[in-house]
Amino acid sequence: MKVETIAFFILCLGLVASSIAVVISKHLLRSAIFLALSLLLTAIFYISFGAELLAGVQILLYAGGIITLIVFVILLTERIEMKKLEETHRGVIPALLASSLVFFILVYFTWASPKVQSLAKSPSSSTFGISKTLSENLFQEWVLPFEVLSLLLLAAIIGALVLARRERKEKEI
C-alpha cells in the first residue's frame, strides 16, 4: 500500500473517532476540544483533495474562531465546577435513522452521478479550491452578489445585537 492510502485511513479513523467523541463525551469542554480536532482533521482532508484555500479558511474560521467562541461561552455560562453532563441520548433511534438516510443518499449520488464521479476521479484537476480562480470568481464575476451577501450578514449581526439588547432591558424592568 502507498503511504498516502495508509495516511488516508488513519485520517478517516481519527475523524470518525473524534466525531463520535464529540457526541458521547460527558463534559462540555471536552466535546468542544474534540470538535476542534475533528474540524482540523476535516481541514487535512480538504488539503488532500487539493482545496487548500478551503482548508486554510476552515482552520482559521472554524477551529480558530468558532471553537474559541464556543469555549468562551462554555466557560462563561457553566458555572458549576466540573459538573458532568446528564445523559441526553433520548432520540438515539430516530437520529440513527436520519443519519443513515443522509449517508445512503450521499453514497448513492456519489456512485450514481457521472458528474460527481468525474470530479472524484480527478480532484487535483478541479480548479475550485485554488485561491486564484476562487478570488477571480468572487471579486470580478460575482462581486455584486458577494457584496449584497456581506450587507445581508451585517444586517443580521446588527439585528441580533438589537434583539439581544431589547430582551435584557425587558428583563430588567
Partner: peptide, 12 residues
C-alpha cells in the same frame, strides 16, 4: 494564511 490560522489555535 496557514501560518496565521495555526497561530490562532494556540489560544485554545
Amino acid at each position: 494564511l496557514y501560518f496565521s490560522a495555526i497561530g490562532s489555535l494556540i489560544v485554545i
